[in-house]
């Protein structure tokens, strides 16, 4: 499946603070790249499924991020809201090759749920 995606290098893992996030501007809108405490990298659309909050500005813990606006907790791997909240942030395949972070933008999947107002 991987072969069919074209990968775009957007920077290196070191550019993203550990337990933090950086944004990549794309035609699909902003994509937030997250780096966990264990250096795993994830990519989600930078819009909370609740009301469109910028997830890139949240606190990253484990493989999750807490939205800065109303504290929904979003699973970084799936984009799904954790716990009682319902909704899913858009997500995008991402991989790390020799320290370079690459996005498979063509396979971007939009999110669902919430009353996002962008």
């Amino acid at each position: 499946m991987d072969q069919s995606i074209s990968w775009i290098t957007v920077g290196s893992v070191e550019d993203i603070p550990r337990q933090g996030s950086r944004v990549v501007r794309t035609d699909f809108g902003d994509i937030a790249l997250f780096r966990t405490v264990t250096d795993e990298v994830y990519a989600l659309e930078d819009r909370c499924p609740h009301a469109g909050g910028p997830l890139s500005q949240g606190i990253v813990h484990g493989a999750r991020v807490t939205c800065p606006l109303h504290s929904w907790v979003i699973d970084l791997a799936s984009g799904e809201a954790v716990g009682p909240d319902e909704g899913c942030a858009g997500h995008c395949p991402v991989r790390v090759v020799d320290g370079a972070v690459q996005l498979g933008l063509a396979a971007f999947r939009p999110g669902r749920g919430g009353c996002g107002h962008g």
């Binding site: 775009i8 957007v10 920077g11 550019d15 993203i16 603070p17 950086r22 944004v23 990549v24 501007r25 794309t26 035609d27 902003d30 790249l33 996005l103 933008l105």
Partner: peptide
């Protein structure tokens, strides 16, 4: 790094 996007693609 907090104030600038990492990259712009497309």
């Amino acid at each position: 790094h907090e104030f600038a996007p990492l990259a712009q693609v497309g």
